[in-house]
Structure formats: structure tokens, C-alpha cells
């Protein structure tokens, strides 16, 4: 059996409607991970050793076990747990499963951003007698967030490529549509190639875009840093 353009154009309209689900799920997971990431960063800043240790290892556990198994756990196992178990739709399960998995990475990015703020800046905020809220709002976060933006952008692309895992629990994205088409017509080559092309078309330009953004951010950030430091000095 060889490549067949007829199958290709037959499969295309069948698969494309799944793109909305795939992209929608990507953004939903991403938003969830962005918010949940804060939760990890916050927990790790609690200065109690047992809590810090536990959080570190829980994050390590989530990070080093397969998201596919985590997905199965939430979809199949969670409803079976007596007392707290609730049956979730495939889409919701996917948001939770992939969202939590990647929130541990996002949390690390936040942390690296905060740690990248120089010690002198913390001391200056203290010396100027800022309130805790003002310290974070005016000094730390404006310096901690910009360098993390390209990394966060990269994770949007990474998650986009992980979202097809959700097809295994029945989320009707492009991969499930392609597999369905393949099973019905016993022609997998063309539909799967379509899926590959769609991913490439969306992720490659995005990667280039983020790369450019990173370079521009670095330039702008250098200028801003100089400005912020000047401000602190003058204050």
C-alpha cells in the first residue's frame, strides 16, 4: 500500500474539527499549570523543613512519573476512591492530569525567576522599609517575571505536543480523529501524516517566535534592570 492523495483529502476534513479541541485543551492545561505553579512556589517558600522536604519530593514524584499513567489514574482510578472520588469527563481529566504534571515544571520556573533577583535588591527593599506586598509588587516581581517569559512560552509548545496523550482517555483531538479514521478505513498513513504536519506547522513557527521574543526580552530587560537599579539607588 502506497501513499494515496485521495485518502489524504478525504481524511483532512475528518481530522481538522479536532484541532479546536486540541488547541483548546492545550490552553486550558496551560492556564491550569500557570496558576497551579504558583501554588508549588508558594508551598516551597514556607520555611518549615518537613513541609519543604515533603513538597520537594511530591513535586519530584509528579515530575518523574509518566503523565500518561497520571492521566489514567485521574480518569479511571479517581472515581473509584471511596469518599472523595468523583467521575470526571475526559476533557476535565486531561486538564487536571496534564495541568498538574506540568505545573511542577512551571513552579520551578517561577522559583528560578525569583532566585535570579539579586540579593542587593532584597536588601534595598528592606532598607527602604517596603511592606511585604510592596516589596513583591514593586521590586521583586517586576524583575523576576520578565526573564521567565520565554521559558514559560516554551512550555506552551511543550504542552501542545503532550496534549495528544489525552486521546488515550477519549478526548477527541486531532490524534483520536486520525486514529478513528484509520480504524474505519484501514488507512493510517495519511491521517497520521496530517496530524504530524499540523503539529509541525503550529509548533515550529511558535518556537521561532519565542526565540525572537527571548532575544528582544533580553535586550529590553537589560535596559529595564539598569533603570530599576538606578531607581533603587536614587530612592
Amino acid at each position: 500500500m502506497k501513499w494515496n492523495w485521495e485518502t489524504f483529502f478525504d481524511a483532512l476534513p475528518f481530522i481538522l474539527p479536532g484541532l479546536g479541541v486540541t488547541v483548546g485543551l492545550t490552553f486550558a492545561c496551560y492556564l491550569f499549570a500557570l496558576v497551579f505553579g504558583f501554588f508549588w512556589t508558594f508551598l516551597r517558600r514556607i520555611p518549615i523543613r518537613t513541609i519543604n522536604w515533603t513538597v520537594t519530593w511530591v513535586m519530584e514524584f509528579i515530575r518523574s512519573t509518566p503523565p500518561l499513567v497520571q492521566l489514567f489514574f485521574i480518569y479511571y482510578a479517581w472515581p473509584m476512591i471511596p469518599g472523595i472520588g468523583v467521575a470526571l469527563s475526559p476533557f476535565t481529566s486531561a486538564i487536571l492530569g496534564l495541568g498538574i504534571h506540568f505545573s511542577t515544571y512551571i513552579g520551578e520556573i517561577y522559583r528560578s525567576g525569583i532566585e535570579s533577583v539579586e540579593k542587593g535588591q532584597w536588601e534595598a527593599a528592606k532598607a527602604l522599609n517596603f511592606s511585604t506586598v510592596d516589596k513583591w509588587r514593586k521590586i521583586i516581581l517586576p524583575q523576576a517575571i520578565p526573564p521567565t517569559i520565554p521559558m514559560l512560552g516554551n512550555y506552551l509548545i511543550i504542552m501542545f505536543k503532550e496534549v495528544p496523550l489525552a486521546s488515550t482517555i477519549g478526548v477527541a483531538g486531532i490524534l483520536l480523529m486520525a486514529n478513528t479514521y484509520g480504524a474505519r478505513n484501514w488507512a493510517y498513513l495519511e491521517p497520521l501524516t496530517i496530524v504530524g504536519i499540523i503539529f509541525l506547522l503550529l509548533s515550529y513557527p511558535s518556537a521561532i517566535l519565542i526565540n525572537k521574543l527571548e532575544k528582544r526580552m533580553n535586550r529590553r530587560f537589560d535596559k529595564e534592570m539598569a533603570f530599576v537599579k538606578e531607581e533603587v539607588k536614587n530612592a
Binding site: L189, T193, G196, L200
Partner: peptide, 23 residues
Amino acid sequence: VEVFRGTSLIVQLFWLYYAIPML
């Protein structure tokens, strides 16, 4: 490098699984 980094592993896996023997 760009093709394999630009698409999902799960898609590549299925592609190799179904498409290579067919193609």
C-alpha cells in the same frame, strides 16, 4: 531535528507503527 522536535512523540510512535509498514 526540527521535524522530531516539532511533533509529538505519541504521533511519531503511531506513525512509525502504522505508516512505515504501509509505506
